[in-house]
């Protein structure tokens, strides 16, 4: 079966060349439509961020801004409280990412390279924790952190975020460790390397793209969370999502242009991280996806 498929395999370039013009047009149309849905909200966010308050609510709305202002960015720069939320976001997200990668790397390595009773059940148990709606766990976590005196601290946020990111990180990294040939470990053992050294000096460097992908996933998860950050952290330890809501969404009105300007600015670190690390991210997410 495999032989038949491989004998019929055709280079990708030739497949593309042979595609009839009509199907190519359809593909482009599909990409354009999907791109529009993906990019239109971002375009609107950028336009609103630069639109004066009284023009932002104009009816009918204008797709192209007729007047541009930087007032919202100036107000944002002058808001010290938002800077505090930003610092909190960075602390919580970075520590969550580091902790998630550290813990999930050891778990994934153990799942991938050791054979022991209950391994498969444990792996599925880890994954099963993803089946619960996270909001359901909020009340329980609140009670636990309250009883342990951690409520309101960074620790409460970091521990809860790490809890939620671990299952996916573990499975992602397990797939990557599966692709590292066991013969390498055996060779290291023959050369006298301990298991600890084999993991740190052979397996982890080879899994670097996966570690980056897992770290980014955990970082973004912590960066974007709203409800846990609002509930478990003190007001002075809250992160940007609740901070932005608190600052711009009020009982009576929403400062949409200011909110859009702030959203644009706070997205920049995540965008920069993705651009800088995207080759690792793609490699890390797809590694181990295909066997053989």
């Amino acid at each position: 079966m495999t032989a038949t498929v491989s004998s019929r395999s055709i280079p990708v370039e030739r497949v593309a060349r042979r595609r009839p013009p009509r199907s190519r047009a359809a593909a482009w149309a599909a990409v354009t439509v999907i791109g529009f849905f993906g990019l239109a909200p971002i375009y609107w966010l950028v336009v609103t961020a630069f639109t004066p308050d009284d023009k932002a609510f104009a009816f009918p709305p204008s797709l192209v801004p007729t007047e541009i202002t930087f007032d919202h960015f100036v107000r944002l720069a002058e808001n010290e409280q938002l800077f505090g939320y930003l610092v909190n976001s960075v602390i919580v997200s970075v520590v969550t990412a580091v902790l998630s990668v550290a813990v999930s790397a050891y778990m994934a390595y153990a799942f991938s390279k050791f054979r022991y009773r209950g391994r498969s059940s444990l792996m599925h148990l880890v994954l099963a924790s993803q089946l619960f709606p996270q909001a359901l766990l909020l009340v329980t976590l609140y009670a636990v952190f309250s009883a342990t005196g951690l409520l309101g601290s960074y620790t409460a946020l970091i521990v809860s975020f790490t809890t939620f990111t671990l299952p996916l990180c573990v499975w992602m990294l397990k797939g990557i460790f599966d692709t590292v040939p066991s013969t390498l470990m055996e060779a290291a053992a023959i050369d006298g390397a301990s298991r600890w050294r084999t993991l740190h000096q052979i397996a982890l460097p080879l899994a670097a793209p996966g570690l980056v992908a897992a770290g980014l996933f955990a970082f973004v998860r912590a960066w974007n969370d709203f409800i846990f950050a609002l509930t478990l952290a003190d007001p002075d330890r809250q992160t940007l999502p609740p901070g932005l809501v608190h600052t711009y969404l009020g009982e009576f009105q929403t400062a949409w242009p200011d909110l859009m300007a702030a959203s644009l600015v706070v997205s920049l670190p995540v965008i920069a991280a993705f651009m800088f690390l995207q080759r690792y991210l793609v490699g890390g997410l797809t590694a181990g996806a295909v066997k053989g």
């Binding site: 409520l151 309101g152 960074y154 620790t155």
Partner: peptide, 14 residues
Amino acid sequence: AVAACAPDAAGGGA
């Protein structure tokens, strides 16, 4: 980092 993450003496936001 762990020390920085520990709750303050006031014990949270209550």
